[in-house]
Design a protein around this nucleic acid. Sequence first.
RNA 1: GCCGGCGUGGCUCAAUGGCAGAGCAGCGCUUUCGUAAAGCGCGGGUUGGAGGUUCGAUUCCUCUCGCCGGCUCCA
Length: 577
Amino acid sequence: MIVKDKTSDLYALRHSAAHVMAQAVKRKFPQAKLAIGPPVEDGFYYDIDLPQPLTDADLGGIEAEMRKIIKENYTFEHSTMTKAEATKFFQERGEKFKLELIGGIADDHVSIYTDGDFIDLCEGPHVKSTGAIPAMKLLSIAGAYWRGDEHNPQLQRIYGTAFFSQEELDAFLKKIEEAKARDHRKLGKELGLYAFIEEAGPGMVFYPPAGAMLRHQIEQFVREEHLKRGYQLVMGPPILRADIWKRSGHLDYYKEYMYLIESEGQQYAVKPMNCPGHILIYGLQTRSYRELPLRFFELGNVCRNEKGGVLHGLLRVRGFTQDDAHIFLREEQLVDEIDRVVTFTREMLGAFGFAEFAVEISTRPAKFIGTPADWDRAESALKTALERQRMTYQIHAGEGAFYGPKIDIKIKDALGREWQCSTIQCDFALPERFALTYAGEDGKEHRPIMLHRAILGSLERFVGTLIEHYAGALPLWLSPVQAVVVPITSEQAGYAREVLQRLAAAGLRVEIDESDNTLNKRIRAAELRKVPYIVVAGRREVEAQSVAVRKRVVGDQGAVPLEQFVERAVQEVRDKR
RNA sequence: GCCGGCGUGGCUCAAUGGCAGAGCAGCGCUUUCGUAAAGCGCGGGUUGGAGGUUCGAUUCCUCUCGCCGGCUCCA
């Protein structure tokens, strides 16, 4: 849905709806001062300064007023004013934000749109008239800083959406409901995958058994894949002396996110990143060019003191685990290695069911360490590697980390939403700061380059993404419990236990439900837990040494010989589908 | 951090300035069942926390903690 394209009809529609909303707000609250009101991906908003806070209850009234305006069917008329005229006009009305906007316009004429009693500074385009807004709805109210700057006053932002038909609007609202139903915060709680415990602190994740099993499966897979590709496992402590963080630059550039600790007169910091640890390991011995690229991998647990208001389920937490690697290499190895990392990333994400990506390169930010020349070389290496991969990417100017430019890869989930996970960062700066060296063919000391990279990113966020992608119905290989054996009556309990044993012996994670609940209820319970297979054993199955297999969501698949089911399930786990 | 909303048993949610209630889950008994909720019974809450107003607060006020929607899209 591209509404950034100003020529699109949807852009005009939503932009017009924003005007109508502002018009309605002005009718209800004449003291309101308007800021900006653009269309956005899912609708539109308008930022407004009001003397009193709005609540959700006010939305209905504003929406009703909007319907009136739509019914009154005012034509959107375009005109221009000179800047002087416009300044006078908006000054008289006390529209201080519009005045600021006019001040920022280079042209000496400004564009104005009028519909009925409402006149707004606006580039357009708009639909013909207010009556040409067939379907709209106000969604929510939020605070938003003027011009997105937290030093500016905070305005009230009203979000709404508009479509060309009621059917499209309904479909949109349905999609919101669907997204809500797969919300990892809801499913995570229901399925026992993770929990926050209020007294333990916000943003600190706990994994009950089901979630810990999921983590275990992911971690095991991730470690093995790294070992297959020439990475070496390393490990380090969670806390390092402040001196290290001073040297790495974190205390200067990242301090606000760090947990600092004092002990026996010494300053320590809980690690917010794993790089210094890996660098210290690099420095344990003299390194040779023959070792490069040297790839250190760790499932590293880091803590970052994120601002309270930005925490969000598993997607933004304060303590998390990164599948983090630091690769030490020579500059001429850079492009090849980035290329390898991108291939690895695609393979890994593919194994978890993600096939679509959105790629970005972030370049030098305002605050940085290292030299601009280093940055340029690093940025060009990232681009070359992506071009080799034939991956299209967007440039995010100035969004790089303070120590180097990066490639970010976002995955698209089942609902088409994007989630940030993988990152590949180039770093010329830290090897310098820690004076890392290797012996070259010439017998002299050389400085390596460092690559920071994470594929799943944060395992917490990745688990959240997996839950939403699969709506909680995780693939067999990741399911905490892969099958529940259900004897129809207690008469089959003995056989059911044999089945349980057999499945467990084949390496499957299995449970048995011998409770005296009805068959229906036990099936329901297993379905609600989203267990992939329910293995039912009744009198017929005992006789035939078979099991009646019920596949999650799909339903009863009929009876198959026990051995055949075992074989198929084991194969399915191996295939990771 | 900022703006707004919310906070009632494990979960989902009622109610009221005057004894806090239901369903699910749990536990016990009965039931032994062929693919998404059998029946009966029992236990479980200083209504997130602290302070205040009041004869009386879970309800009103203040503070605090936590959660939710946003704070990137520049007429």
